[in-house]
Nucleic acid binder design. Sequence first.
DNA 1: GAAATTTGACCGTC
DNA 2: GACGGTCAAATTTC
Length: 246
Amino acid sequence: MSPSPSRPPSNPRDAAIQELRRGTELAARLRQQVELIPELDRREGAVANVNEIAEAMESSLSILKSQSEHSSETGESMAVLAGCGTYSSDGGSSARNGAVARARKVRHRRGRLGEEARITKGILTEAPENDRFPWRKYGEKKILNAEYTRLYYKCGSSDNHSKCPAKKYVQRQSNNSNPPLFNVTFINEHTCCSTMFPDESSSRSDSSQVIDFTNPLLPSPLMEGAPGLKQEEEARTSVSMHSCVY
DNA sequence: GAAATTTGACCGTC
DNA sequence: GACGGTCAAATTTC
C-alpha cells in the first residue's frame, strides 16, 4: 500500500477518515476507467464491483463519524465500547451495558479445563468469515435482547496436536444496515498459525482492515488506512469496518 | 464414511 | 434462577 501523498492528520481517527475519503475518490476514478471497458457484461460487472467498494467506503466513513460523535460525548475510553454498541437497533444503553457485562464476564471466565479465556480484540465487520483462519462452528445461542443468535467458533486447528485455543464469537448487529454488520469477538491468540494472524505486522501491508488497538501506538479507534486502488478486490470481499478492544 | 454443522442439555458465574 | 459459553449426540453434507 502506497503512502498517502498528503501528510496525515495527527488525530488517528481523522487520518482514517481522510484515507477513506481518498479511497472514495479513487473508487470514483476507477469507475470512470471501467466504464471505458467495451464489453458490456464485463463493464457492468466491474462497475457493480466499484460501486460496492464506494458503498463500503461510505459506510466506513459514517461509522467512524458516528463513533467520533460518541467519543466527544462520553470520552475516549467509553467510545471504544460504545463504538461496538452503536449499531444495535435495540440499542440503547442496555445493549451496550450488556456488551460490557459480557466482556467482563468472559474475561474472567475459565473454561471447563481451567484455562482462562482472554479477549484479544473485537471488531465490527461485514465479513466475519473472512479472517484467513479455518474456524469451526461449535455452538449457536440465542442471546438476551439480541435479534440474532450468537455463533461460536473454534480455530479449526484446535483438534490437532497444536491445540490452538483461539475462538471467536460472531454476533450479527440487530440494526438493518445493508450489508449487515457483525460484531466479532476474538478469544485467545492463535498458537497454531500465529504468523497468519491479520494484525501481525507481516500482513499489515496486505490491506487487512481489522485493527488491533492493543497496539500501544494506536491510542484510539481508527482505521489503519483505507484500501488503495490495488486493494479493490480485497475491499470487496473483506470489508472490516472498525474494531474495539474490550 | 469422514467431516462439518446443528441443537438441546449441561455447567459456571452472577 | 437467569444467562452466556461449551459439550456432545444427532443430523447433514461432501
